[in-house]
Simulated scan of single mutants.
Amino acid sequence: MFKFVEHIGVIVPLNIANIDTDIIIPKQFLKHIDKKGLGKFLFHDWRFIDNKQLLPNKKFILNQKIYKNASILLTGTNFGCGSSREHAVWSLLDYGFKVIIASSFSDIFYNNSLNNKLLLIRLDEEKVNDIFNIVHLNPGIKCKIDLINRQIILGDTVFLFFLENSHFLRFSNNLDSIDLTMQYLNDIKKYENNIPDFLVNRKIFESYS
């Protein structure tokens, strides 16, 4: 069962701002409705020179051997902007990314990621630049993400980040939005039972009790 309180992985630096969802996964791959298998299309137009994925772009950082199994993405501001396609999150997860660190994210992309348990960490741009500097000086460095203490640990350097308690509960207990709502089921039933009969069809509520 998926439970996330700590993750250690290689951090890959992609210092580009405003990476939109069409770059993350181009529109021609949106016909796939299964979350599995979308990782091979991640950053397709940057990872490959041809459309058949036969010629990798050796200059693109994810094609460098040292970052082959990277699971933490460090990137520029406004990551995930553009269209609301959830496939962008699915492709990142299927590729193997567990965490994305940036100074800001598109709101829709952020919520899609949260619902799919892809952890997004917002940091001040100054701190993001500090991490870029560390990673550039130490290619292939592993990073520890500690959700309990809200820490990013890179060697001897620690960066603190904010994570709402409700978000922490999602990751640490493998909960989705429905699970979180069902925690208040008794309160919901109490509220429903207090609604005057002339406003509702009581039989509807009774069927759920």
Rank of each mutant, 00 (worst) to 15 (best):
L175A: 07
L175R: 06
P56E: 05
N18K: 09
L38G: 05
I131Q: 02
F105C: 00
I100N: 01
N57D: 14
R47F: 07
S207K: 15
Y110A: 12
I24G: 04
E206I: 09
I131H: 03
I33W: 09
V128N: 07
I100A: 01
K35M: 10
I131W: 05
K144E: 11
K98P: 04
S209N: 15
L185Y: 15
N133E: 13
E192A: 14
I145E: 01
Q183S: 12
T77S: 15
E126D: 14
V12P: 00
A70R: 07
N57F: 03
H32I: 12
Y191G: 13
F159S: 00
L147E: 02
L163D: 00
A88C: 10
M1R: 09
D156V: 05
K65F: 13
N111Q: 08
D124M: 11
K27M: 09
D176K: 01
P13E: 03
F162S: 10
I72T: 10
G76Y: 05
L38A: 06
D179I: 06
H32Q: 15
G76C: 10
N173M: 12
M182D: 10
E206K: 14
L73A: 11
S83L: 10
L123A: 05
N138D: 11
L54T: 13
D176V: 03
D107M: 05
N116K: 11
V10R: 10
S172I: 00
L55V: 15
F41Y: 15
N69Y: 15
K65Y: 13
V200Y: 04
P26E: 03
W46M: 14
N111H: 10
L120T: 08
S103A: 12
G96V: 02
N112F: 08
E6P: 01
I152L: 08
F171A: 00
K52C: 12
K58Q: 14
S172H: 00
H167F: 13
S166V: 11
S103Y: 00
I25C: 03
L185T: 15
N174L: 07
P26G: 08
F29K: 05
N63F: 07
I8Q: 06
F48R: 05
C143N: 01
I108Q: 06
F171R: 02
N15H: 09
L123H: 01
K3A: 07
L54E: 15
G82V: 11
Q28A: 07
I25H: 01
Q28Y: 07
T157H: 08
N57Y: 06
R122A: 11
L147F: 02
H167A: 13
Y110C: 04
D34R: 12
L30V: 01
S83R: 12
E125G: 08
L93V: 04
P196I: 05
S104M: 00
V158N: 01
R85W: 08
F171T: 08
E86T: 04
K65W: 06
L30A: 06
I23T: 08
K52S: 13
N69S: 15
D20P: 04
Y95D: 04
N174F: 07
K142C: 09
V5L: 07
I8Y: 01
N138V: 06
I178W: 06
K59E: 15
K68M: 14
Y191I: 14
K189E: 11
T181A: 13
E206R: 12
H44C: 02
S172W: 00
G9C: 06
N186I: 13
L114G: 00
F198P: 05
E6G: 01
K142P: 03
R202N: 14
T181I: 14
I33E: 10
F29C: 07
K59S: 14
H136V: 10
E86I: 09
I121L: 02
